[in-house]
Every structure is written in C-alpha cells, then in structure tokens.
Amino acid sequence: METVIELNGVVAVLGSFPALAGVNLTVQRGEILLLQGPNGAGKTSLLRVCAGLMPIERGTGTILGIDLATNRQDIRTRVGLLGHTNGLYLDLSVEQNIQFWASTVGASKDEVANAMRTMRVDGRLAKVKAGQLSAGQRRRTALASLIVRRAEIWLLDEPHAGLDAAGRDELDALLRNAVAAGATVVLASHESERAASLATRTVTVDGGGAQ
C-alpha cells in the first residue's frame, strides 16, 4: 500500500487559536477515511492542512510525498478540497463549468465526457445552468470537476449536507466508484452512522488532536 498522507506531530494555528495540536495521521491510497468529532474539534482545519491551505507551525508532514512545510502550492494542484460551497459559476452550464476546470489543467474532451458520465451530470443536465441545479446536482457537478482536475486525494467537508436521502445514497455510490478508480477520500462529517458505513476507517478528531 502507498502512503498518501503522513502527518507527524502537526501543529497548526488559526489566528492565535491552536486549531491542530500535534496530529499524527497516516492514510493509504484507496482508503475512505472518516474524520468525526464535535464542532470546532479541528476536522476542517485538518482537511485544510492536507490541502496545503493552512501552514503547519510544528511537526512534519507529506502529502503524496510532497513536503507540507516547503511545497504547499504543488500539493494544492494534486488534491481536491470540497468545502461548504461547490466552487461553481452559476451562470455557466454544467458542461461549461467542468470544461473550464478541464482547461485549467489541459484535460481532454474525453476526460470531460467521462467525468460527466461518472457523476451522472451528462445528457440533459449538461446544458442546464449551475444556478438552476438542485443541491445534489451541484454537488455532483463539483465532484466531476475534481475528476477532470485529476485530484488524487478528495478532501470533502460535510459532503452529505443539503442532500436528500436519495442524493446521499447516490453520493456514497459515486465516492466508492471514485476510490475504485484510484482516488483516496478523506471526509469530515457529522452524520457518523451514514459516513461510517461508507468509510473504510474512522478517526476521531477532538481538541485539535486525532485518534
């Protein structure tokens, strides 16, 4: 198994508040790791550190073998973070949104078509503006953009939020498909039972630490 995330005693600070207090974490390629814990426990901060967005103050870490302390910009280009917003342009159609992300990395039209098919936003939906989509359809469009960006690690913050029961089932199936295709998924969720049934491993985050 290939280690894609390795954190050793990582400390990260949000303003003057210690968001992560000595986190140790190892994630292997192909895992679906669930981060669970109460509000303010540090789940989102942990995702942002793994995405190369938050600098680490102490400790060491690598993401896909890239040093977190010195090369965060390169990490950003290889992981995908989906937070509470979807990062879509509401006046562009689904296809135009995904095509735009494809253009930023030089992905081909075939890759765009495959991503749209995988996330089931092809066909009639392709021409619909993102602003007219349901919450679940927007989430699927955002996930399709992660695929065309060739993100190797998917960092998802509350991915089930705003989805109905059918949408949640569909999202779970899509994440399993993505992992089968070679991605690694780390998700933070309040919905422990549902997310635990999806995850291959669960880590509890509390007080800025992970166990």
């Binding site: 995405a51 190369g52 967005l53 910009q73 390169d74 990490i75 950003r76 280009t77 995908g80 973070l81 937070g83 917003t85 979807n86 990062g87 879509l88 342009y89 992300w101 930023t104 960006r149």
Partner: peptide, 9 residues
C-alpha cells in the same frame, strides 16, 4: 469559485 481556484493551486 475564486476560493476553489485558489484551493486548486
């Protein structure tokens, strides 16, 4: 979206 561009490096 601008955040997403920034996050994506």
């Amino acid at each position: 979206a601008l955040d997403a561009l920034r996050v994506a490096g």
